[in-house]
Amino acid sequence: MAGLHIRSVLVTGANRGIGLGLIQHFLEMPKPPTWVFAGCRDPKGQRAQELQNLASKHPNLVIVPLEVSDPASIKAAAARVGEQLGGSGLNLLINNAGIAHLTSLDNETLENMTQVYTTNTVGPLLMGQAFLPLLKKAAQGNPGSALSCSKAAIINMSSIGGSIASPFGFDLMQVVSYRCSKAALNMLTKCQSLGYREHGILCAALHPGWVQTDMGSSAGHTPPVTVEASVRGMLKVLSSLGEKDTGAFLDWEGKVVPW
């Protein structure tokens, strides 16, 4: 993680699983960010207890109420983060919040497709729009430097399940709405990389691996990758991302995932 020097980072879906793991690792960095923002639906609820415990020990951790399927919640979160940052910008936005339903082609529904797509694809779109002024401000603070996560970046947590070229795991779980939402998220990442490059903002999609989280284990199989290994790998990848990687779809080990 030697190459990752960020003043501020926001992680959505930060109260458990990969999101919580990322927050913990940012706080444990030799030179941790000045501000670590943890977005979650219910900051005072039981499911955010670990975040609350961390916040009591780390004054640079700010828990932000955030429901990524609600535009008003996103707008309020952007205002809250901007207020905390004062005149400085946001270096790194990690769109990690996501949902999945164990559905197949036969029982997929309009309601499921809409809910999953709204959270997994539209949410990151709206987050990028709402936090663009803060990301641009961070990029302007490093005017001469090349694209990097230390300057300004949007990282979208995708999945190999969204790869049209790879049938990975279809025999174990079809999760059609989830796969479609992640394929769309990959295209959103490409669009963001093209639209935000002129502002000095790097955009990339990451596959964290099949990770031992509530979501990863929901089909009754034990995933091969621990949260610890996934997060360590992804942070190493983030520290190495540059101009050539904007718009890319990579996994937690830095390998290119087929679109």
Rank of each mutant, 00 (worst) to 15 (best):
G39S: 09
A14W: 06
D251A: 10
I164G: 05
P143K: 03
R41M: 03
H101P: 00
L235H: 01
H5I: 01
S159H: 13
Q46T: 15
N112S: 14
A184D: 03
I6R: 00
V256L: 11
K75G: 02
T246C: 06
F249T: 11
Q84V: 13
P124F: 01
S69G: 14
A153M: 04
F170K: 13
P32M: 04
L27H: 03
L132T: 11
P167C: 02
N142D: 05
N120I: 05
Q174V: 11
H25L: 11
G141W: 00
F37M: 11
N91S: 11
N120T: 06
H221G: 01
M113G: 02
M187A: 13
N107E: 09
Q24G: 07
L134A: 05
P32T: 07
F249C: 10
T118K: 10
L194C: 10
A79L: 08
V237L: 13
W259R: 09
G39A: 08
L54T: 15
I74R: 04
Y117I: 09
P223Y: 00
A219E: 05
L206W: 06
E228D: 14
K57M: 11
L4Q: 03
G45D: 04
S148A: 12
V11Y: 01
E111T: 04
G254C: 12
M215W: 12
V68H: 03
L110E: 13
R232W: 03
L238I: 08
K44R: 13
L102V: 10
E28H: 14
D245H: 15
S193E: 09
L238K: 07
E67Q: 13
W35G: 13
L20C: 02
T103I: 09
S150D: 01
S181D: 08
N95G: 11
L110F: 12
A138K: 03
K255A: 11
S240T: 13
A184R: 06
G21Q: 08
T114K: 14
L4I: 08
G98W: 07
N95H: 09
M234C: 13
H199S: 15
Y117H: 12
S88V: 09
S145T: 12
A78F: 03
G89N: 06
T121Q: 00
S239K: 08
S240N: 11
T226Q: 06
L10A: 06
S69F: 06
I160L: 12
R41S: 04
L27Q: 02
A229L: 11
G89W: 01
H221N: 11
G128F: 02
N96R: 05
P224I: 03
H221C: 06
H207Q: 11
H207K: 13
L185S: 10
A79C: 04
L132N: 05
Q24L: 10
L85C: 08
L135W: 00
A165V: 08
M187R: 14
G220Y: 05
G247K: 12
